[in-house]
Write a protein that binds this DNA or RNA. Structure first.
Lengths: 190, 190, 190, 190
DNA sequence: ATATAACCGAGACGGTACGTCACGTCTTCAC
DNA sequence: GTGAAGACGTGACGTACCGTCTCGGTTATAT
């Protein structure tokens, strides 16, 4: 089923088809095993159409990530007023995703992609985990709900939280029920 | 210069030559770009000799890691009695390594390798960072030097520390002087 | 010096380059010793370009044969009216070719190729020795010049002549001056 | 089941086992596809034991041939007094062998072996088809049963007969009932 | 209204690396 | 000192993808 043609302007249909094919292939077989030819075939698109707009499969992956096609957009900090509870809920959701076989595999794939492609690395940080808003929220919480001292290194706190998630994905250790809370206790104090 | 033959037993010379070639190639060009043919050529060895003993380049890399050929063995916790100071010194050394272009690249390569190979992931955790002894030391430190409560989740603390290092490597952000201390402050409190 | 590209249609330049390389390599080193990689390298072509169009080196060889690149097209029956003299001249030329070291080696190579590849066998018969026209001519000669009875089994006569040539090539016995005539005498009578 | 050892003299058991394995493998899969490792494994013998006594698989094949393990010894000219009838019977047997799928394949294999190995070529001629005795018999028959002139080129007659058989094997054309007789008619006259 | 030019699908091309097979050499050890 | 076993360096196999390059066909825009 060939895609409809749109003349000498970039075909949005082709672009979407490529991103969807990429996301599907990563979900099915992992970032390694992802090939340009596989994407083109799955998307019903010529290889040149991919190379015209992206320099590498890492770049396509990064755009997938940015479009929210790989990791659901749900990983957003809630905003109830109780920062500690918000963080717990957010981390809980992430660990839940990590607990599913699908999620663990995709996340691991993305780590691999990030390791060899700087763009993916950046996207993985801010588009996926919204690290910025995370540290902003931590800053806002100083002196309020949790036992954060006024000059707490929030940036480092955020890195520690997210880093622990990555390490968990890398090490392939299964997620246990209370893990998210324990991590929060460890980093923020009880 | 062909290696000496040793008959129907495994050639230790070939094994070492392969591991050394692998370590050198990873250090020079990164884990992606590492090829079996490249290893064989550099090691002066037939490809089959590699495939006879390792199923994949990930496995070879894991053995390199285990033999301490990729990351220096220096990342060991000192043991001065002052746990906090020991941790600071250990983290400082790691961040120092991460600060060098070489070290950052190798570490990132290994993360990529870990993402696609479970064995590498495991080795990267315990052979490299001695996570076990790390949490053991944290346990020992409870109630002593630092402000760790008696039931502190040391395992999670260790994961947060190491995870932050990995995230730093992945995100390619340069290391600044006080980073190690700030991370320690963030996770262990001041 | 890369060959010119011609897009998504088969490149005639590549095809010719491959056939020429094949013919040259067979002439130089024999059919055994012929390798796909050798052909590709000599032709300045990717291996896949060979495999895309031919299933085996035997098939490439068969096409060489068909294109007249391996055995000169000169082995054609003259047509003077005197069939006996025509046959003598034709056989003489073949034995002359067989007498040269080059010719003997190539012919033997082709026999080896024919033994393991049916296509080569067929080509070797009809494209090379024009067996068809040979038996047709023999049929035409019945009752005329030679002592062929009206119902002479011309097909078998042709096979005997060509077969004797093959056997000579296989057995590596040097060709002596009067051999062609003697063979003709033996098969056709004096 | 390892073969019994016999100390510092050549093991006849090993030699026979190798030849039998070779003959079986050629019969099963053809001369190309025959491998030294396959022979060794099938014979329950170390590779070195083969290389110690034969320089190539062609040589092993030649010895098989010489021992009558590949082509049945039945292809011998009968000796009834009627040379024409003897030849007819002999050729008939050969064509019968050639008519079986097994026989056609083995013979073709041997031609391939002969094409790349001089020794096999020689053996194939005299050990297999007893060409010597054939031309001797033809000589003896001069002036007797058939219409051979006194100075008939018997050597060439023999070559034509055998050559026709080889060509038939090479060209993979099925054998029809009267073929042997027709060939004899063609070459010797009616 | 028509040419022009960018885009599209398809896929052939010269390459690199894959993982496997077999080669012929060599070494160990049991008999 | 022969023979089974099998590791070794070498080299070819046939396959998968790479990134580049036409090709023929569409279609929006600039003449």
């Amino acid at each position: 089923m060939p895609l409809p043609r749109s003349g000498p302007v970039r075909s949005e249909a082709a672009r979407l088809s490529i991103l969807e094919a990429t996301a599907a292939l990563i979900a099915e077989r992992g970032y390694d095993h992802l090939t340009m030819e596989g994407i083109a075939a799955r998307a019903g698109v010529g290889k040149q159409t991919i190379y015209r707009w992206w320099p590498s499969k890492g770049a396509v992956t990064a755009e997938c990530l940015f479009e929210g096609m790989l990791v659901p957009g749900r990983f957003q900090l809630p905003h109830t007023g109780d920062v500690r509870r918000d963080l717990a809920s957010w981390l809980g959701e992430i660990f839940g995703y990590l607990g599913s076989e699908q999620g663990e595999s995709i996340l691991r794939s993305l780590i691999g992609a990030a390791a060899e492609n700087a763009d993916v690395g950046r996207r993985l940080r801010d588009a996926l985990f919204r690290a910025d808003s995370l540290s902003a929220r931590l800053t806002a919480a100083i002196g309020t709900t949790s036992n954060l001292p006024p000059d707490a290194p929030v940036e480092e706190l955020a890195e520690a939280l997210i880093g622990a998630v990555l390490l968990r994905a890398l090490s392939r250790e299964p997620v246990a029920p209370g893990d998210a809370e324990r991590l929060l206790d460890a980093v923020l104090g009880r």
